[in-house]
């Protein structure tokens, strides 16, 4: 499988120093977990030193589309379409969102739209059982450690969840061996600019409600037998949907 990992020139949120984006590092890890034989990093923009760090995480080759920063989607799409003529990538992987720019996480979606490819999002890992060639089975990460299976047709774009555990280790020797290649992107007109006023972030608290100790009354059982009490609890929990039905409980144990 041939995979392309989209790379951005990110910054460390704490220090503001140039740093690889966690999601993109995970994308490299996911590409490896998917068994990608060829793995190329692709950056829409001129090369910057920080990109070499992705080499440390396992990329042997990084292609920088200089001039591509004006309209990254167009530049990336052009590159990928051109590449398809030679050896088509099966997979384009990206982080959930960049770190240091607009950080909207929109780019992979736009790229998929432009290429006419499907996009699978928030992926943490491949599923163990893979379907026949031409499709991919992936685990989408959900809150509270849950996962959702996603089947997607190749070629496709995949964004990697920030919760994914597939973080490759950093190897300095690989970093210094990485080939960062500048390639001139075709001249594209300036993409849309975000409007409004850019200023330092002011941290605002999240909503909290007024502290309360009381509450509204509900069902009340006084001095039931333990059996009645247990049965009532089980029935109540079932009605809330927090306790799996008996048959589900036994089947979930087996999985």
């Amino acid at each position: 499988m041939k995979a392309i990992v989209l790379l951005s020139a990110g910054i460390d949120p704490v220090s503001g120093r140039p740093a690889p984006v966690g999601g993109e590092v995970r994308a490299i890890g996911l590409a490896r977990a998917l068994g990608a034989k060829t793995l190329i990093g692709l950056h829409a923009g001129a090369s910057v030193p920080a990109l070499a760090d992705y080499g440390g995480y396992g990329l042997k080759e990084i292609i920088c589309l200089s001039g591509g920063e004006h309209d990254p989607v167009a530049a990336l799409a052009q590159f990928l379409i051109r590449a398809s003529n030679v050896s088509a990538p099966d997979l384009v992987l990206a982080g959930t969102r960049g770190c240091g720019g607009a950080d909207t996480g929109l780019l992979p979606y736009r790229l998929a739209e432009k290429l006419g490819w499907p996009i699978a999002t928030g992926i943490a890992a491949p599923l163990e059982e893979q379907p026949a060639a031409g499709r991919l089975a992936l685990a989408q990460a959900r809150a509270r450690g849950a996962v959702r299976p996603v089947h997607v047709t190749l070629p496709c774009v995949v964004t990697v969840s920030d919760m994914a555990e597939c973080v490759p280790s950093f190897v300095f020797a690989d970093k210094r061996a990485v080939q960062v290649r500048d390639e001139r992107a075709e001249r594209t007109p300036q993409g849309e600019m975000e409007e409004g006023l850019l200023r330092p972030y002011r941290r605002r608290p999240k909503l909290i409600s007024a502290a309360r100790t009381g509450g509204t009354g509900g069902q009340l059982l006084v001095d039931p037998t333990p059996e009645e009490a247990a049965a009532a609890i089980i029935a109540h929990l079932r009605s809330l949907g927090v306790l799996a039905a008996a048959d589900e409980a036994s089947s979930s144990k087996m999985t």
Binding site: P205, L207, I208, S209, A210, A211, T213
Partner: peptide, 11 residues
């Protein structure tokens, strides 16, 4: 009273 009953107002 509960702890910090008016924290939400400050917040």
């Amino acid at each position: 009273f509960p702890v910090a009953p008016f924290l939400h107002l400050a917040s």
